[in-house]
Design a protein around this nucleic acid. Sequence first.
DNA 1: GTTATCGCCTAA
DNA 2: TAAGTTAGGCGATAAC
Length: 968
Amino acid sequence: MDHKRHNGSRLMGGPSQAKRGKTMGEWEDSPSQFEEELSMFEEADMDAEEMEGQAGHDVIPVGDLFSADLNPRWRRPPAPSLDPSSDTLVFQQIDLDYYLAGMPGQSQGKVPIIRMFGVTDNGNSVCCHVHGFAPYFYVPAPNGFMSAHLVEFKKELNSAVLKDMRSNKDNISVTVLAVDITRKESMYGYHGKHIIDFLRITMAMPRLIAPAKRLLEQGFKFAHFPTSNYQSYEANIDFEIRCVCLRKRYKIIWKTWWRDENDRYRLNTQKEASLCQYEVDVGWKDLISHPAEGEWQRIAPLRVLSFDIECAGRKGIFPEPDKDPVIQIASMVQRQGETEPFIRTVFTLQSCASIVGSQILCFTQETKLLQSWAEFLRTVDPDIITGYNIQNFDFPYLLNRAAALKVNYFPYLGRVRGIKSVLKDLNFQSKQMGRRENKTINMEGRVQFDLLQVLLRDYKLRSYTLNAVSFHFLQEQKEDVQHSIITDLQNGNEQTRRRLAVYCLKDAYLPLRLLLKLMCVINYMEMARVTGVPLTYLLSRGQQIKVVSQLLRQATKQDLVMPVVKTEGGEDYTGATVIEPEKGYYSLPITTLDFSSLYPSIMMAHNLCYTTLLQKGSVEKLGLAPEDFIKTPTGDLFVKSSLRKGLLPEILENLLSARKRAKAELKKETDPFKKQVLDGRQLALKISANSVYGFTGAQVGKLPCLEISQSVTGFGRQMIEQTKQLVESKYTLSNGYQADARVIYGDTDSVMVKLGVATVKEAMDIGREAAEWVSSHFTPPIKLEFEKVYYPYLLINKKRYAGLYFSSSASTHDKMDCKGIETVRRDNCPLVANLINTCLQKILIDRDPQGAVEHAKEVISDLLCNRIDISQLVITKELTRTAQEYAGKQAHVELAERTPSTCWRTTFPLTHNTTWSSSCPNLSKQKRATTHAVKLREAPVLAAKLCSRQMVCVCNFHLLYFSWCFGK
DNA sequence: GTTATCGCCTAA
DNA sequence: TAAGTTAGGCGATAAC
């Protein structure tokens, strides 16, 4: 075999060198680096295989082969046989869903069966059918209800639901499986341990809950009881959440290991409904779950598959699945916990020269390529599938292409036999993320972990192209292949196709590397474990579900039930205070004091919860004494924890103690990247804790309670005001301090104090002391902490400031901290961000405002003389957005070539002789709008935007400058 | 020519 | 059917 590197990257009429920016010079080396990396894998494999036996061929010659020549390592390790009478099956659950099936021994009627998927320590896949758990909800029992009435109630409700059904394609005859009486209490409002009878209504299917709830709410009559409108409880809980949550009572936590109890599971040998190696049936009660502690914290060797496809598009047209073929699919598979992929494969259309370290399968027919890849996927049987934008591009394209070519066996990508993977459009909308159109593909038992979606959720980046992201996190980039030449490469020879294959492989490899580096899988599992939400929900749903799940878990322990409230948008409530800033440049240390986790600690300190809320008239009705409850700044009443401890405070305590642990680990950790990850985790827990407050204020949500949220912000407003007064009253000349302290700014939970001391050390010492002293005025766990000193400090406006950040040491600053300024905003072009950044550095670090002026002038002059690279002028976010409208990641590359900005550069040189220097210093607010001397009558809109933004940057610069000179 | 409002993004 | 919160700066734009 030829082990020499095939340098197939030199092409006749190859890619235009002109397109390359100056920073891309090092790309020249990158292909060989990646290929060397690949060949290293090969060596490692050979060592391993001397023990294992044969491996697959490097290149399988052109031909339309399949299964006969499978690479043996594609399969999972053989599953040791288990004896149901003596062995237990232990596995880590990674996904769950449910299906409907006829109950044995019952001729008609279907019941839901939970299907759990998981992996054993040995790396064998498991499908576990859990029987005997049905969805249910509650309504309060009417007055005078006795157990003798249960039969009648059930019968009436059952027939009402049946009658309500428009069609009955499942031929359901029994909708209500059971009704029983349980002692429960509503979690909404305190009513003095008032436990009452509730009817627990168990339905045959999850989707029957909604109609039953509606019928009961609209007015339901049975037996001699009068028609009444029943308020329903917990009727809006997803079934998956329900079954995970309920088991929480028995210490089941998501992401745990399951085994049967008393060896009572059966191997399900007849059904083989899934592709898993073990398939078992188990009763709900016979399932044991282990909290993720000690040995159960370990993670099974999950199989993570990353893939990327290439299509041969037509010139200038985005590939369309009904016309343009899929020419390559690269796949990499790695076991969770290992550092290298053990499968590296490219499926190619037409021949392809060998690539050391990867297996190439060549096909002459595209249909065979697609079908074989699907078979490959089913054989590898990954638990997690990743890639870059696979959710909205690769998978939809493959499915549509397979449909267009009538590859009938393609779209079965899940683990359940006979379930077709279908493409659906999904509109996801939230205030946080705006409207987002997504596609979804069902893939039972596998978790789709699209890295782009993860990054969009968790990281705020200027650009989300795979190239930019890889550079940002890995300092590595894609193989240099211009998108426009892909078709040419395909139509070339086996060497050009080899080049394409290397490119494609790298695009499959990078997501895997990123996933590992960012520790996404582990972090998401942790989040799932903490909140009790299935892994897939974390990527497909919003923040609320996490709080609901925790709330429900906590509530169930105390026999509290959650009401269904109708969602209606109401009045907004008052939020936090932002102290009016004393704008200017401070060449003195400024001490910053923060309340740590302000809102959560307010809720804990004052026991704010649904369960402690006193609704109108409750005080009188329950005969409460004044010392039993508190009145919040907004006038709402809550009972003290001596009467009842709230659920929300409990949840928050859990989250914050988890955060403390993470922070402690962070301190011990030395590896800078793991540190970053731990930091990310503690941040996630903080965000989770903060979203508890957000949840109560979400008026279009599962359980809004404005009394709680407005009380929280009310306390917050009071506290920041009080903090300001306390600090300014104690740290005064008359009390023997160096100066009268002054709170120059503060936002929500922090105050910036000018103590009048000259050194950072003094500012820190007094800061620590002040924090402790102020804390003593508040109820624990509310705590004001000294966090940092800014020196010098430039305060531009509310939510806009910069300063050198001193925290760990009094002698050297940790960083230059910028808040809200152009440097941190993604709606500015890089030129503006860089210019402001440099100016700030000159002002704050070099203390050279004149240098800042010079620099700005220089940049502006470069701009006007057209000496600025176009990449500096493009707002990447806008490009990304436009690219998303094209609905494909390859559009990113396309756009780089096709974006009108390149045209503007030639047709619209930035040569306007603007009057920026004379007009900008007049910074009277409204006048500034008129200083846009550039009147761009014929220019494209975006170009105009860019120009004016540059003007803005100049104006801002002057603001900085004048703040420095005059603002004190 | 000012002034209210919207879109976007950030601070907390 | 599902969607964490409010405060606030700043540019663009429509309305007066």
